[in-house]
Amino acid sequence: MVQKLDFIKETPSQTAGPYVHIGLAPAYAGFDIFENNFTNEIAGPNTRGERITIMGRVFDGSDAVVKDVLLESWQANTDGKYNHPEDFQTKDVDDDFRGWGRICSDFETGEFTLKTIKPGKVPGRNGSTQAPHISLWIVARGINIGLHTRLYFADETVANGTDPVLNGIELAERRKTLIAERSEQDGEVIYTFDIRLQGDGETVFFDI
């Protein structure tokens, strides 16, 4: 008999189901319960950086809009520094920068909106540099295990061109699924990012 490895197995995932909002965004489920709700503010008013709004919708394999989806976002600040003790970079994190957000799509239109600041470049593996990006995690009824993807910015052509993750996508055509288009409306910077769970233009999802 060889020695025994003492690992335990990860708890298996189960779908978040249709009522995920009760637990993760009760106000959205239609009631008020906690004294303190998470502000859901990714970047407070004092956080440095370009203010941006990300808007999009999630589509299923029949091209129908998924209207009960919940997304979480995770990003670095404008200097590319994460609000986390393991970020080894000697850079400051803004006092009111959380870096994390939770967003529900609208039950009627399916549109989700995320207000944040544009992140900076982040170190990659082995001395490489990653283009500015926001990590996204998507759950909903019918999604058996949360889907990880990333949002990149269309105006970062040069950085995107050398990003190790984008370049790791074999089919160049599919890289586009991770790039949000930039536009301006009434002085507001809008990035549009639709997510396709399945079929034509299917978003690239990661096993991380």
Partner: peptide
Amino acid sequence: YKTSVLRSPKNALLSIDQSLSELTGPMF
């Protein structure tokens, strides 16, 4: 589980190396 039929990616997930983006996360 019928709802998963149209909400499941058809392509294989892309395996990526964990960088700071994956090793960090929100804390409360």
